[in-house]
């Protein structure tokens, strides 16, 4: 949840979460309640700075009396609701969703994917060696960032961040339908020919590493990417008066990527091209 400092106190409502009576503010999602209660539900398309598309379905829980499972990230808690987060039915769906994703896309850079696959005993290989995959090669068409759509789970976050939820640039959209749907510019033109302004706010929200800094992509290719050897320093962008927060990720005395704290109440993790990519001058030695 985005931190919104000033607001009227919200009324509380009570519902049952895994048998325990639980009180949450009106408007809270089941996921908010789970997190408050310390329950760990996998999520992918949910993000702290965006309204989720609830498309990945890895967060489904069972609501007593409902015909289908409900996405915890988007379904609001209702008074009297009885929710089971760990029922056989919910766990099976989560497991199969992980299997479907892992058998069709490359989850190697998706944080926690490997851990969840283990926890749910998911077996992506069960669909056989001929199971169709997304099969995309990385699109390297500019110096700043790479789109490796083989890793894309189609969570819509980048589209929402580029479009109506943040950037208002609308350089990318989902094109095609079904299994052939892909994140794309118009007519799949290269980024420099598109409306992209290189704010990198799509990279900021991408949960899989499908969108990444060119510097990160190259280091991963070369096998030199090492998060344990990186430091993160949050500072202030000096380019203009907005004064956005920047978090510089530094490995071996080189800035390797720039993020921005999501809990900043003004910018919510968003930057412009200068703050995001204009760090070379800091490295001129």
């Amino acid at each position: 949840m985005t931190a919104i400092p000033l607001q009227l106190p919200r009324r509380l409502l009570e519902f049952t979460l895994d048998g325990e009576p639980t009180r949450v503010p009106e408007g809270a999602t089941i996921l908010d309640a789970c997190r408050a209660a310390g329950k760990d539900i996998p999520t992918l398309c949910e993000g702290d700075t965006l309204t989720p598309k609830n498309a990945c379905r890895v967060c489904v829980v069972e609501v007593e009396g409902a015909r289908t499972l409900a996405p915890a990230c988007s379904r609001r808690a209702e008074a009297g609701m009885k929710v089971l987060t760990d029922s056989e039915r919910a766990r099976t769906s989560r497991k199969v969703v992980l299997e479907l994703l892992a058998s069709s896309t490359d989850l190697s850079t998706t944080p926690r994917a490997a851990e969840w696959i283990k926890e749910y005993e998911a077996k992506p290989d069960r669909f056989g060696p001929d199971a169709a995959r997304v099969n995309e090669t990385p699109k390297i068409d500019n110096d700043l960032y790479v789109r490796d759509l083989d890793k894309c789970i189609l969570c819509y976050k980048c589209v929402d961040a580029c479009g109506e939820q943040w950037q208002n640039t609308f350089a990318i959209s989902v094109a095609g339908r079904g299994f052939d749907a892909r994140i794309s510019t118009e007519h799949a033109v290269a980024l420099p020919e598109s409306a992209c302004v290189y704010c990198g706010n799509c990279i900021e929200v991408c949960p899989t590493g499908a969108l990444s800094f060119k510097s990160e992509f190259d280091m991963r290719e070369a096998g030199t990417w090492d998060e344990s050897a990186q430091t993160e320093t949050t500072t202030i962008c000096a380019y203009c008066g907005v004064g956005c927060n920047l978090t510089l990720h530094v490995q071996e005395n080189e800035i390797v990527k720039v993020t921005s704290p999501h809990d900043n109440p003004v910018t919510h993790g968003n930057l412009c091209i200068k703050g995001r990519f204009g760090y070379q001058h800091a490295q001129q030695r």
């Binding site: 498309a55 990945c56 769906s93 189609l154 989902v174 095609g176 079904g178 299994f179 749907a181």
Partner: peptide, 11 residues
Amino acid sequence: SCGQCVPCRVG
């Protein structure tokens, strides 16, 4: 399939 959600798109 419209492709929006994983169970249907890949399922």
